[in-house]
Design a protein around this nucleic acid. Structure first.
Lengths: 216, 216, 216, 216
DNA sequence: GATGAATGAGATTTCATTCAT
DNA sequence: AATGAATGAAATCTCATTCAT
């Protein structure tokens, strides 16, 4: 999913570009694709309606650009984790990943919600392309962590890596959802605000994988 | 979240009511709340626009009614599972639940997507109420299964029930998502179409819980 | 070119329908298809913008309806001429036709200009269909007059009917254009306002055909 | 209708000027004045929008320039015919004229369509001026041919020159329209593609004039 | 109780034009 | 002399909602 066009946009001063994308992100992630309003965006930005259309051509174009950029940020974030944490054991890797994810979502809660939008809205153009790109990246990242763990002897042969990746992805994703979506833990008090309990979650998760996922 | 309004609606013949709610469900779950169009709904139904507004008052009213009814169906479905499967062991319960969930989603894929809509769309009226109701019901249902399992001695003391419920909920929900949302397994081939592999997933899941989730 | 849809429109009171079509005709014939403005039309009519779109769906739909109706009127007009003037000689027929045409254009100058619009505007939807329908009708009508004239012995064998029809059509059409388009006679004073000179034109035209058009 | 503005334009290299006017001609003649888009023109040209406005000031200015230039070309074309064909008889003159016209339209079909645009579009600025200039030139040209013919004794006294000019103009114009506008002969097969039949048409036309147009 | 005509605000998008660089 | 970013009015069209019949 390459960055689509928006030539005009690239010539703008960095600061202005940033402001535009932030406001657009907010709009899309709060109201969904259909609910988002170009009028509202330009109103908040204080720029002319025509300008936004010169930058991105269509509402679709704007959305795709915003989402592509969000995806790039996620990838950068994960790449960062890997670069800074080579040769550690699995639980440490996962810990860093989850921590990075949680930190990212706290910092860019809207980008995460953009992803959630994609899951259900059939009217979003190129939805399938975007979603597939994202899912593949996520699962492959986790699977690569598991493969390294196996090479280090952390995971027994009976552990099915694909299944394990799926489960880790599911739990971590739900964990992260709980940071971005209110009521996701339905008031059970599972998460305290300060991230202190992440250690416990990670430990559980790795134990689960190591002991509980058998090959088919 | 009580059912409001819709007095006029209830007097309609059952068949007509069914058709209206089905079409409205389709519209909302495919296009999201904002993207859904009353015009499109009455167009597909072949009834007058005024009628729909007499039944439900507003677009909000229609959405709330549709969603409430969907929630009722989910509850009925789960109640059914419990009634038909008392006194079994945990893995059997979870198995039945997951099977029922998968069956339900195959039969009513749109209702499930209505739930996904809720997760992100801030513009949906009473979103928080609806979401909270749903999450609570889901987590409490699983927690009650776990409590029964502990009473039967299936779960050691060191297992934290809330955490376990959360993880089960996460994995099951992601599993179900993969039935309703294309590309959710990103082509890893985790699921075959005929549900046959559910047994394996459940076994893994219970093992994980029994061995891997420690009290904080 | 059948009348396209516009179901909603047909239920309106006759008087209102008339007013709408008149105003729309004016707009299109004065400004062309692209230049015509829905805003301007509803502004002049004093009705809501949404109403016009409920009647005709799109700008295209409105244009096609207006044009189709204009074509029907032209056909009715010519049918009328034929019905009232059977068994006469050619010059009398042509005279009646031209008179009817001139009368029609004086009464509905805008409809005639709608036809002229078609000639050049590639962006008008279904332009070719509409134009072909109109041209065929016109040429066939004149040709049928010539065939009858030949049967009555008014036209010698050497007269090529297709060529003659084309020439008559050309001159009559240009004659009629001069009624609708200012400056068409470039100030040569060929036409006095009161139609009195039509007799002379017709006489010339028939003489031309009878004496001057040879078979290829 | 003097050429206004365009000082900056004249300093451009000949090749560039040509390209700009060609593209502008295409746009106007295909879409009409209102439908034509400056955006589309500069897009096709690959030049900056601001440049076009520096050359011609406004859309009106561009159109007037394009049209004036087209008119000059038509005049040049006819002047050429006269210069190369002095002292011939009427039918020969008309033949050359028609041939030149047909050749011109085949080579510059868009310029001809520009003229047709003028006939109906009230929103074109200075429409009347332009149209009058064109019509006068055409009718006067033909009339001058007829006057020369009379001096040579080709036309009897009873032939009304204005009427004759009008008829010739009408038939020739329609004949030329059939080259530029599809369906103008409505499938009657009156014209073969290679211009070979022009001889026949001219012969008919002159005969018609000589025998059939009487003074009022 | 059902209808569907009427509404006007608001949606996305295109337009000709200006002007600082 | 050329550029293209900025503009805001106006374009077409859709929307949820009202209400008289």
């Amino acid at each position: 999913m390459p960055l689509i066009a928006a030539e005009r946009f690239h010539n703008l001063p960095e600061e202005k570009k940033e402001r535009i994308l932030t406001v657009a992100s907010e709009e899309f992630s709060q109201k969904g694709y259909a609910g988002a309003s170009i009028n509202s965006i330009v109103g908040r930005l204080g720029i002319a309606k025509g300008s936004l259309f010169q930058y991105f051509g269509t509402k679709d174009g704007l959305f795709r650009f915003v989402f592509s950029r969000a995806l790039e940020r996620v990838k950068d974030n994960l790449r960062n984790v890997r670069d800074n944490a080579r040769r550690k054991e699995l639980s440490s890797h996962l810990h860093d990943t989850l921590l990075a994810g949680a930190w990212f979502i706290r910092k860019h809660p809207l980008l995460y919600r953009l992803y959630l939008q994609l899951l259900t809205d059939d009217t979003i153009p190129f939805r399938n392309d975007m979603l597939l790109a994202l899912r593949q990246y996520s699962l492959e990242y986790i699977r690569s962590l598991l493969e390294e763990a196996r090479e280090r002897g952390e995971l027994a042969d009976h552990v099915d890596l694909n299944r394990a990746a799926f489960m880790i992805d599911a739990v971590m994703d739900r964990f992260l959802q709980a940071q971005a979506v209110p009521y996701m833990d339905a008031g059970l008090g599972l998460f305290d605000g300060d991230m202190a309990s992440i250690q416990g979650w990670i430990k559980d998760l790795v134990q689960m994988i190591q002991k509980g996922v058998e090959k088919v």
